[in-house]
Write a protein that binds this DNA or RNA. Sequence first.
DNA 1: GTCTATATGTTGATAGAC
DNA 2: GTCTATCAACATATAGAC
Lengths: 203, 203
Amino acid sequence: MTSAPRSRTLPSGEPRPRYDQDSLLAVAAEVFTERGYDGTSMEHLSRASGLSKSSIYHHVEGKEQLLRLALERALDPLLASLNEPDVTTGRAVDRLHHLIRRDVEILADRLPYVTLLLRVHGNTETERWALDQRRGFDRRVAKLVQQAIDEGDVRSDVDARTTARLIFGVVNSLIEWYRPGRDTSPAELADQIASMVLDGIRT
Amino acid sequence: MTSAPRSRTLPSGEPRPRYDQDSLLAVAAEVFTERGYDGTSMEHLSRASGLSKSSIYHHVEGKEQLLRLALERALDPLLASLNEPDVTTGRAVDRLHHLIRRDVEILADRLPYVTLLLRVHGNTETERWALDQRRGFDRRVAKLVQQAIDEGDVRSDVDARTTARLIFGVVNSLIEWYRPGRDTSPAELADQIASMVLDGIRT
DNA sequence: GTCTATATGTTGATAGAC
DNA sequence: GTCTATCAACATATAGAC
């Protein structure tokens, strides 16, 4: 698991992330991702982290808080991507292009966290919250696609909502097989995908 | 999938739901699909089916057998689609077109079963078996894409394996939102998707 | 901050009456 | 074929010593 420098003073604004909580979170995301949230017991997390079960409770309130923190690791950059300059200015089809590239990069960068996000079932309050955040994201992408259709750059024989869903169907499917390091670089992959997707949807 | 009571008329008194293995399976697939396999307890299945837990054990050996039967409902037609005449004769790009159309139809027809298949984590023997079947399917699709590249009909700047994965990334993402009846007809959807995908990957 | 030991509830599965 | 009652195993979480 990744280790982070511990004693550096961080810029104010966010509560100082605790080293132990962070590395525990990385382990938890990996195990949740592999076994599913429900299929993961505190015993599994204990073995994977090398901590006893009760020591884990020293760092986090419980299993569900680990889930929430891990999901935020995926949701924060994804939601932020919608507000980046490249995605908020210019022709809609170009903004869409940037968004696709950006989100492939985020997915590659935060793979276990995004994988977790995409596999969540609405069994707990935290899971339902995550699903709700995803829906909000999807809605905003659909709006962008609609704009691109209105501007005449994207085919209009398929409706915007469907097109938006298919686009992120492709992007999100990366979690099933993409492994940074082993496969193409994130930037190159992002180019290939954006190119294929746009060839498929353009007028 | 609706939890179908037996078609037979029941003896006098209350219309107690009677189940055979098939209708129980439909309920199980629905609940597994909604809550995840690990997140589903026999108690959940009991409530959803109207049977007591122990009555469920009269029909099936246990929870994992329900999973296996449900997964076969998805895997059988998917694997069979690879051997259909339209998919085994002619130019590779056309066979690919047929395969995409066919699998969108299968997905629409067996939605809860395919959804379950695509969400499985390798925690149990049955789950690992399903993952293995999926890998075999993917390999055969990748071969077909490679043929289409060799025949000059599909772009060669992205490798066959990646292209195959992206194609079924789109198709499989349907489980996230497609609902037969509410949305476009399966045939129409299959056309739209095949069209977009092929526009994206053709030379 | 870590551990062992344990409280308390839920799980998949079984026994046996009707 | 259905049910109620029950089990052993395992779940999340806590107590308290070091």
